[in-house]
Simulated assay, not measured.
Amino acid sequence: MLRLSFTQKSGLLILALLLAYALGAPLLQSGDATTQNLSQILTAPNADYWMGTDHFGRNMWLRLAEALQLSLMMAALCVLTSALIGVTAGVLAATRAPWFDRLMDGVVTMILALPGLVLVLIFAAIVPGSFWMLYVAISLIQWIEYFRISRAITQRLTQSPAVQSSQLMGFGEWYIFRRHYWPAIAPQLFTIAAFGAANAILMMASLGFVYVGIQPPLAELGLMIVEHFSYYSDAPWLLAQPLIALALVVLACQLMGRGKSL
């Protein structure tokens, strides 16, 4: 059973609070995150607009929640997909014929030939503003870490007496994976997943900075920071909100990854 350290619990708490806000905000205040009200431009936080309005009079309480939903969904999808592909490929590379291991090593080398963000930019340029294209691009990069860890652990275990005994007794590959490989791989995945989630969110925000990521009127943290920067003197709270949200969600993931399990 996975036991979390105090640092990891702190990160999990911050992430839970952000998720609760992202999902619960639309239930607490009616409206739409994209509806413009030009008579309420740059309104400071008040009883009607709890976090004020942006330069188009849109409700920041709802827009920030939508942006967090998008970021957290991207992180979750990338982590799940990357882990599934990486662990599967890593175990197969370590247990199959040597030619398959060499093939996978060549694939990894080709992907690593370009910096990760550059590769994501190339995919984003193919279909600008597509959430799913960004998801594919980020997952294409992140599965490599899961692959490397899974292959290294599996290669070490294939020659262990426990695995060889199971093979001699006629147990299938699924049983061997579930009984021997997975218990050794799983503890390492939590840290990789936490840092991977933070990187996925930062990558999507970075694309928003250069206007090749999620496009308006959808709310995305990186895009919101760029859009609001021009108003930092007239409405400083407007720029601070997405900055703080981005910092908190990345901090939560980093804390969950840095803490050591007991």
Score class of each variant (00 low, 15 high):
Arg156Tyr: 13
Ile176Leu: 06
Ile192Trp: 00
Trp182Ser: 04
Val107Gly: 08
Phe171Leu: 15
Val108Gln: 08
Arg148Glu: 08
Val163Gly: 08
Leu84Val: 12
Asn199Gln: 14
Gly90Cys: 08
Ala124Val: 05
Ala186Asp: 00
Gly129Tyr: 02
Ala93Val: 00
Ile149Trp: 04
Ser150Phe: 07
Cys78Ser: 08
Ile85Arg: 01
Ala152Pro: 04
Leu119Val: 04
Val127Ala: 05
Val87Arg: 08
Thr158Lys: 13
Ile122Arg: 04
Pro98Val: 02
Arg179Trp: 12
Thr88Ala: 13
Met74Glu: 05
Val163Asp: 09
Leu117Val: 13
Pro187Ala: 02
Ala76Cys: 10
Leu121Lys: 10
Ala194His: 07
Ile126Thr: 12
Ala89Met: 06
Tyr135Thr: 15
Leu202Glu: 07
Gly196Arg: 05
Pro187Met: 00
Leu117Lys: 02
Ile153Pro: 04
Glu145Arg: 09
Pro183Met: 09
Tyr181Met: 06
Asn199Cys: 06
Arg102His: 09
Glu173Met: 09
Leu77Pro: 06
Ile126His: 03
Phe100Pro: 01
Thr158Ile: 12
Val127Pro: 02
Glu173Cys: 02
Val120Ile: 14
Asn199Ser: 14
Thr81Lys: 00
Arg148Val: 07
Ala76Met: 10
Val107Leu: 14
Ile85Phe: 12
Arg151Tyr: 06
Ser206Glu: 12
Ala186Met: 04
Ile141Pro: 00
Met203Gly: 03
Val107Glu: 05
Gln142Met: 05
Ala97Gln: 11
Ala97Trp: 09
Ala198Ile: 06
Thr158Ser: 11
Ala162Gln: 15
Ala193Lys: 03
Ile138Val: 13
Thr88Ser: 14
Arg151Glu: 02
Gly170Ala: 11
Ile138Ala: 13
Asp101Asn: 13
Gly86Asn: 01
Thr191Ile: 04
Ala89Thr: 07
Pro187Cys: 01
Ser139Cys: 10
Asp105Cys: 11
Thr81Met: 05
Val108Asn: 03
Ala89Asp: 01
Ile111Val: 12
Trp132Glu: 10
Val118Glu: 12
Phe177Ala: 14
Ser139Thr: 14
Gly106Asn: 09
Thr88Asp: 01
Met204Ala: 05
Pro115Glu: 09
Thr81Gly: 00
Leu103Trp: 11
Tyr181Phe: 14
Ser160Phe: 08
Trp174Phe: 10
Val118Cys: 14
Gly90Ala: 07
Ser165Arg: 09
Val120Pro: 01
Leu157Lys: 12
Asp105Asn: 15
Ala193Val: 06
Leu92Lys: 10
Arg179Leu: 08
Met133Lys: 12
His180Lys: 08
Ala93Leu: 01
Ser82His: 00
Ala89Phe: 05
Ser206Leu: 11
Trp182Arg: 09
Ile85Gln: 02
Val79Thr: 03
Met169Asp: 10
Gly196Glu: 04
Ala186Leu: 10
Leu168Trp: 06
Met110Phe: 14
Met169Arg: 12
